[in-house]
């Protein structure tokens, strides 16, 4: 079996005059993974919904009393109404924006913070590595929820501040990943060749090492997205997250919790949306990990 696979690969590589690039290869492998494909479709749908919500929602998401309070799902209000008669679907759509902004925004910032730190620690090693590793460990030591709550409390609970608070408590995994990647990549011959051709350190770090670590970075960030979304939902559930009238899936669930018995849809709808989204990002992350794994050629 293993031998047959290898042989097939070799002949394929020989016959194909123009091999596909790394990325199209990865995409081909990703498409073959059913769960990842479904997850991707769901996420594309979610992004479309969030974009549509910028210009259109069935009702104004903050309009109070447009439906009977606690109204169950109906043709007019697909996901029913909440405790003060707001349309849950409209709020869910805007909540998708919040979740996606938090999820993607934190990970972009996490990359912006973690990657340079990891690159520096892994490339220069020595005392710089010791200092940076120490800092990373200190941050691992702090209780993230507590610190995030305190930060949001001090800075004020805006979307930006929530993102900052999540980044501050969650950048270390990315730095550590990048440090490890750098340590092994710096020993590769093409890095030596780049140094021998007179490339500057910044060029070597960002032009040579970083692109080679892009696969693992993307996978790590993809797994980071649902973690951040959940973190935000939790903060909002506790009331220290996104502030009214902007809905977050976390605060929507929190609003409905007292009416759980007679109007469960208020809690269920955002919770299911949250779960599906977390699941989708995790499946996508798994799929990407397999698709981008350089050891796996099929």
């Amino acid at each position: 079996m293993a031998t047959a696979t290898t042989t097939a690969q070799v002949s394929e590589a020989e016959i194909l005059p123009e091999q596909q690039t790394l990325w199209s290869d990865a995409w081909r492998r990703l498409k073959r993974n059913r769960l990842a494909l479904v997850a991707t479709i769901y996420l594309v749908f979610l992004i479309v919904v969030a974009l549509v919500a910028l210009v259109y929602t069935p009702y104004r998401m903050s309009a109070v009393g447009i439906a009977p309070t606690y109204a169950p799902p109906s043709a007019a209000h697909w996901f029913g109404a909440d405790s003060i008669g707001r349309d849950v679907l409209s709020r869910l759509m805007v909540g998708a924006q919040v979740s996606l902004i938090v999820g993607v925004g934190t990970q972009l910032l996490v990359i912006a913070v973690g990657v340079p730190i990891g690159l520096l620690a892994g490339y220069y090693r020595g005392w710089l590595d010791s200092v940076l590793t120490f800092i990373i460990n200190v941050f691992y030591g702090i209780p993230d929820l507590l610190v995030a709550m305190i930060m949001v409390f001090l800075l004020g609970p805006s979307l930006t501040n929530i993102i900052v608070a999540i980044v501050v408590t969650r950048w270390m995994d990315m730095a550590r990943l990048m440090r490890g990647q750098t340590m092994s990549l710096r020993e590769r011959e093409f890095i030596e060749a780049a140094r021998a051709s007179g490339a500057k350190p910044a060029r070597i770090l960002f032009g040579h090492i970083f692109p080679n670590a892009l696969g693992p970075i993307i996978v790590q960030a993809t797994f980071g997205v649902p973690a951040a979304i959940l973190f935000e939902a939790f903060l909002s559930f506790l009331g220290v997250g996104v502030q009214p009238p902007t809905p977050s899936w976390g605060s929507m669930a929190s609003d409905g919790i007292s009416a759980l018995e007679y109007a469960p849809h208020i809690v269920l709808v955002p919770s299911i949306a949250l779960s599906l989204t977390l699941l989708a990002f995790n499946f996508l992350g798994d799929g990407l990990r397999d698709a981008l794994d350089p050891r796996q050629k099929r």
């Binding site: 093409f190 030596e192 060749a193 021998a196 040579h208 692109p211 080679n212």
Partner: peptide, 15 residues
Amino acid sequence: SMIFQDPQSSLNPVL
């Protein structure tokens, strides 16, 4: 300038 032994590994694979 220098040329190394293994051309397979002395070019950056992603560039």
